[in-house]
Design a protein around this nucleic acid. Structure first.
Lengths: 245, 245
DNA sequence: TCAACCCAATGATGCAGGTCAATGCGTCGT
DNA sequence: ACGACGCATTGACCTGCATCATTGGGTTGA
């Protein structure tokens, strides 16, 4: 469940050997970036690379939490359901994010592939013994979890107190920030998820999401480009909109 | 910001010496329960016991995060503000909860006393060196943070997808669960916070909170007792109401 | 090539919960 | 004892977003 904020990743300390992750091929972003050669070796022997297609379930709420995942490609949605089918998406995970860090015996949320997804899967038992061996790993995980908590609180503010327009703008800005951090071109934001995913993430309906996008287009606050990319011409203006100045 | 779920506290391992916390007088609930005599000695030398009256600020968003707190009495509200004054309360902390665990340099939320509050305050620098010395502490903190994340996701579901009635009932049930875990009498729930605190926690207005309480009273779903305590006569029924069956 | 879908967009209408306003009740200070 | 104040409750009304319904474009597969 932990959603790694790339902006706040603790920089690998000089005395650590920073390696590409042999198992999952994500350099410097994954858990592997704090492992040395021996540890990496141990990890890659037990890791599995898996692929998922759009809508494939990755984990189901309630099932035994035997694995930890590292997203290495594509976008994953985390969500919870109410008995009558109402859905709340609690986060989108992309390249480098961890999935399944929680220490519970069972997953407390479900995860599905939004688009074509690659993950690197480790048995959690193995990770736990690694944690005992290498305490600095624990510190890093604590940092990851702590960043997740900060984001969760921002999301509570968004869900509880922001208007539809503020929600959409906040969402676009957070995507932009994250995609910029990962190193894609800053300007146009990719939206791999559907309107209904966005709605369930922001506590709205698809219709309201759609209408709000139209509104922002009319405003010239955003521009839709070919391929569904969204350009954000004036970040400062949007930043004010996001907090309702 | 970390809100300790007493149900899920890792039980102190047999090989740890479990002590009362000399500095803050909360037994078995606080960080001190995983320290041995020497560590406790170190801690109590640098800890301060502080008292706060209703509405007193405890920490302000943005200020340097130099301290970590352990709540030892009363109720604390954590919140964030939008520029126009809209407030989202992200959690209420009570006996045994930690405040300020996040690893950022500055607090990302504010905290105030709801009623008469006691806390035990440690310099964070000192805690960090303790963390380096005693890695099991880190594991425990990771467990605390991970439980917090689970709760945060439940709160997102509540804020994004539940009705006013479901929100209030969910809130009462979570208070009941927590107060029962702490060991108070199970049945009547104490509500130290105001209607407007509840509203800002649940993404509602004070009027809607008030009306919804009246509704639940009419239903016989809850009963108000002297001293503002709320009795929950049928937990199973309420549990269904909370998830909108 | 053309159904059968799925998804986005948009219009018409409804309603849950927000806003505004009035009342009442404790509590506190003088 | 009494005004001033903060908080809870309740009523009347309003509105932002939900709901319901229609259209159209893009994709899939027979």
């Amino acid at each position: 469940m932990v959603n790694l904020d790339l902006n706040k990743l603790p920089v690998a300390r000089a005395d650590m050997v920073v390696n590409p992750c042999a198992a999952c091929s994500v350099r410097d972003l994954s858990i592997c970036s704090v492992l040395d050669e021996d540890e990496l070796q141990q990890m890659s022997e037990i890791a599995a690379n898996l692929q998922f297609s759009p809508h494939d379930p990755i984990i189901d709420e309630g099932e035994a939490a035997d694995f930890l995942f590292n997203v290495t490609g594509g976008t994953v949605r985390l969500y919870k359901l109410l008995p009558d089918g109402r859905r709340q998406i609690t986060g989108f995970l992309t390249n480098g994010d961890f999935l399944g860090i929680a220490l519970n015996d069972n997953y407390t949320y479900s995860a599905e592939a939004v688009d074509q997804v690659n993950v690197c899967r480790f048995p959690r038992k193995k990770l736990e013994s690694l944690l005992d061996q290498y305490p600095h790993l624990e510190k890093r995980l604590l940092g990851v979890a702590s960043n997740e908590l900060v984001q969760a609180q921002d999301q509570m503010m968004l869900l509880g107190r922001k208007t539809a327009k503020e929600k959409i703008v906040s969402f676009l800005l957070s995507l932009s920030k994250r995609q910029t951090a990962i190193g894609r071109a800053a300007s146009p934001v990719a939206l791999p998820m559907s309107r209904s995913d966005i709605a369930d993430y922001l506590g709205l309906t698809t219709e309201t999401v759609s209408r709000t996008f139209s509104l922002l287009k009319r405003d010239q606050s955003i521009r839709i480009q070919e391929g569904g990319m969204v350009a954000l011409p004036d970040i400062d203006h949007l930043t004010e909109l996001a907090d309702g100045y």
